[in-house]
Design a protein around this nucleic acid. Structure first.
Lengths: 108, 108
DNA sequence: TTTTATTATCGTAATATTGCAATATTACGA
DNA sequence: TCGTAATATTGCAATATTACGATAATAAAA
């Protein structure tokens, strides 16, 4: 039983949890920070910066990319990644909505 | 290699990831919402509401409690849980700080 | 077309997480 | 003290996640 029973929760609940899961590993937190500071950078830059292997970084990038948080274009042989700021804001808003709703319930 | 290498990241990075991990399972997201609506409730109420077994709920409650998000006092044989709203706000602020910093880096 | 560089994917081992049943522990009341 | 109720803990199986090396796939340049 390592798989979560997603069907017993509503859409919003699963969404919040899915978003949180993207940030639930420090490598991905650090990668996003690093990319934002460069405005744009390539996989091997991230490998040098974070200190994990290239294949691990690529896996983490896939999680982030699948979450819609990256935009990437080829620059020569490299993919140049930058943040999808709109998506970032969307996630932030969903989180704040959850946090605010939960707190406000409590203060009535 | 299932364990994350936490020593290669800085304190803030690990903190954000640790907070996100608390919310990275829908049961915990739902439990917090449910508790907030009741203002206070007991383990078996949560079992009934969420639909997982008592032992599973207890495990999820432990994760939430270890994160400092709950206050609990005995009411008879039951523990009556309510939200630690201050801690909630702290987490929210840390998240927003991370989100805002990362986005602002990008918009320079 | 071949070579080189870059990144993604695959396979693997180790560890973490999830859910449940069984049971231990704790908190009362009789 | 015993009985009951409530919750935590333990053990287990199944699955997910993490990191890495090897290699496949992709994008140029020669």
């Amino acid at each position: 039983m390592g798989a979560s029973k997603l069907d017993i929760y509503n859409e919003e609940t699963n969404t919040i949890a899915a978003i949180a899961k993207v940030f639930a590993h420090p490598a991905r937190v650090a990668i996003l920070q690093f990319i934002s500071k460069q405005d744009a950078c390539i996989c091997n830059d991230i490998v040098d910066e974070i200190g994990l292997s290239q294949s691990t970084i690529s896996q983490h990038l896939k999680v982030i990319n699948d979450a819609g948080l990256l935009k990437g274009d080829f620059k020569g042989k490299s993919i140049c990644y930058c943040l999808n700021v709109d998506r970032f804001k969307t996630f932030q808003n969903l989180f704040n909505s959850y946090f605010n709703t939960t707190q406000n319930n409590c203060c009535t």
